[in-house]
Each structure stands twice: as C-alpha cells, then as structure tokens.
C-alpha cells in the first residue's frame, strides 16, 4: 500500500515536471515577453533592457528554468513579473479556492439536473420525452461558454436583475451571498456537464436495464422504481464516477472562459492572463496546480471504484 502510494507520488511528480517544462518552453517560444507588455506604449530600449535584466529574463533558458524549479520545490513560487504579486499567495490562497467553489457548485448543479434527465430519457427511450430530455441536455453544451455566460448575464443579471452580473464573494465568509454571486457562473460551467452526465446516465442505464439480473428482478415482480433506483443506478454509478472524475479535472480547466466573463479571480483567469502576459512563473504555478488537481481527482476516483465495485476490492 505504502509502496503504491510512493509510486503514485513519484509518478505525479514526474508528470508535473513534464508539465512545467512544457509550459515553460511554450511560453518562451511564443513571441513577446512581460517587459514589452509592461512598457506598452511607453516602450524604450533602455527601460526595457534594465527591467529585462532585473527580472532575470536575460539569463539562458535553462538557468531560468532551473532557478525557478529550485525555488519552486523549496516553496518559493516567486513573484509575478508584471505586478510583483507573490505567486503562492496569488495561486493557492486566492485563485484556487475561487475555482474550487465554482467547480463544486457547478458539479452539484450538473448532477441535480443531469441524472434525472438521463434516467428519464433511458426509461422513456425513443419517445418524445427521450428526445426532449436529450435535446435539452445536449443543448446545454452546444453554446460556447463565453457566449452562454454573456447571454445569462444580460438576461438574468441586467434584464431580470435576479443575480449579480460578475464578481466573487467568498462563500466561506458569507455562504448565501457567495452562492448568489456564483450562480450564473456555475450554471454557465455546469451547462456543458449536464448534457454529458445525462448522456452517460442514459447510456449506462440502458446498458444495465438489459442485463439478466435486472430482468430477473423484474420477473420477481419488484416495482420498476425500485429496480431502477436500487439495482440499476448502483451500476450506473461506476461509469458516472469515471466520467465525473475525468471531467472534474476538465471542469477546473473549463473554468477559464467562465472566469473571464464573470470576472472571477480564479485559476482559469490567472492562467489566461499570465499566458497572455507571458509570465511563465505564474503559468507554471497555475498549470502545476491544475495538474495536481487532475492527479488527485484521479486518485480519488480510483478509490471510489474499489469502493463501488467489490470485485476490484478483492483484486486490490
């Protein structure tokens, strides 16, 4: 068990190392640098050169990367080139909680809507209800999220005035207000996953419903609601968990556009801004965090499998 954990940690570290190298190389290869952005219209060679040197951007790439890595593993994540903000504070203390709240809220919404929609369309397969449920679910992920977000802002924020149009209030400070502020962004983000969850639920429920033990249960005269919710749903949970697991990583990543539209200071916003600013230290911190979350989610999902599937438990 401990060995496996160590192996996992080693593997994770390796993946993250790869991720950091890749993002570093990408940002270095991309034309442009933070200093020209900082100087903007006030560009002049002298100021540029001085700042460039001051920020250590004139050193060879390998040296820049090595010193970043050295600092990073010892807990010094450095400072943003442009704003001089402490990156650890920015990424972990500020951005991460925002994105986690958003993703969690969106996940709950997606499950609350997606599962019933999927069950409905599986039970009423090939009827108009199936088509409707599938249609509604599928339409959710048919619009670019920035567009959906903007439409929601104008309809529910400006037109009806039900929800705030943008901004973030920490739910841990004020739960209700926090959720209220996060509702439109969460719907925007959830829209994509509602369709997905509904589809997976539908497909795997159909799959399960055809199996002999369900037919047997039915033959025994068990009520169909019981059959569905007790016998069948248990087996739907497996693929659903996998999907959610895979997607949760994706959800944190999918938050990019949602955060930009709703001006949420989360990881997506941070990474986007930093990529556009060519701030490799910030991007690396962000991508490492996103990678770490991805790995953690995968580990949790693995654990959930063994818990859900007794066969796997025996194997382990």
């Amino acid at each position: 068990m401990l060995n496996r954990l160590f192996a996992q940690v080693g593997q994770t570290a390796l993946v993250l190392f790869f991720v950091s190298v890749a993002s570093f190389v990408f940002l270095k290869l991309a034309p442009g640098d933070p200093v020209s952005l900082m100087l903007g219209s006030d560009y002049n060679k002298d100021s540029y050169d001085k700042l460039f040197t001051e920020l250590g951007l004139d050193r060879p790439w390998a040296a820049q990367y090595a010193s970043w890595l050295g600092d990073f593993v010892t807990g010094d994540w450095g400072r943003s080139f442009v704003s001089n903000e402490d990156i650890f504070r920015l990424a972990v203390m500020q951005a991460l909680p925002v994105t986690l709240c958003l993703a969690a809220y969106a996940l709950v919404l997606a499950l609350l809507i997606g599962i019933p929609a999927g069950v409905l369309s599986a039970l009423k397969r090939d009827t108009w209800m199936d088509l409707c449920a599938t249609g509604v679910a599928v339409f959710g992920n048919a619009f670019p999220s920035f567009y959906l977000g903007i439409v929601l802002i104008w309809v529910f924020g400006v037109g009806l005035g039900w929800f705030p149009t943008l901004g973030f209030v920490a739910p841990w400070e004020n739960l209700l207000e926090g959720l209220w502020y996060l509702t439109l962004p969460a719907i925007t983000l959830a829209a994509w996953y509602i369709g997905l969850i509904a589809r997976v639920t539908r497909a795997s429920l159909l799959d399960v419903l055809g199996h002999s033990y369900i037919l047997a249960a039915r033959a025994r005269g068990e009520g169909s609601a019981r059959v569905v919710w007790v016998h069948a749903m248990r087996n739907v949970l497996m693929p659903l968990t996998t999907t959610i697991g895979l997607q949760l990583g994706g959800m944190l990543r999918g938050a990019v556009m949602t955060e930009v539209v709703f001006a949420l200071p989360g990881l997506g916003m941070m990474i986007t801004a930093a990529t556009l600013n060519r701030e490799y230290t910030v991007v690396q911190a962000g991508v490492m965090l996103s990678g770490l979350l991805f790995v953690i989610v995968n580990l949790v999902v693995d654990q959930l499998y063994t818990w859900l599937d007794p066969r796997l438990r025996r194997l382990a």
Binding site: F146, I150, I153, W154, G157, V158, G161, P164, T165, L166, G167, V260, V261, F262, A263, M269, T272, A273
Partner: peptide
C-alpha cells in the same frame, strides 16, 4: 475598483447597477 477583463461584462454590470 473591480478589475474586469471582458468589457461586455463590465457594461452589463454598470447597467445592472452592480
């Protein structure tokens, strides 16, 4: 001062009185 990247969101926030 709220820092907003997407101008259309900023305009919406103004019209919504936020």
């Amino acid at each position: 001062i709220r820092l907003i990247r997407e101008p259309s969101s900023g305009v919406a926030a103004l019209l919504a009185g936020q």
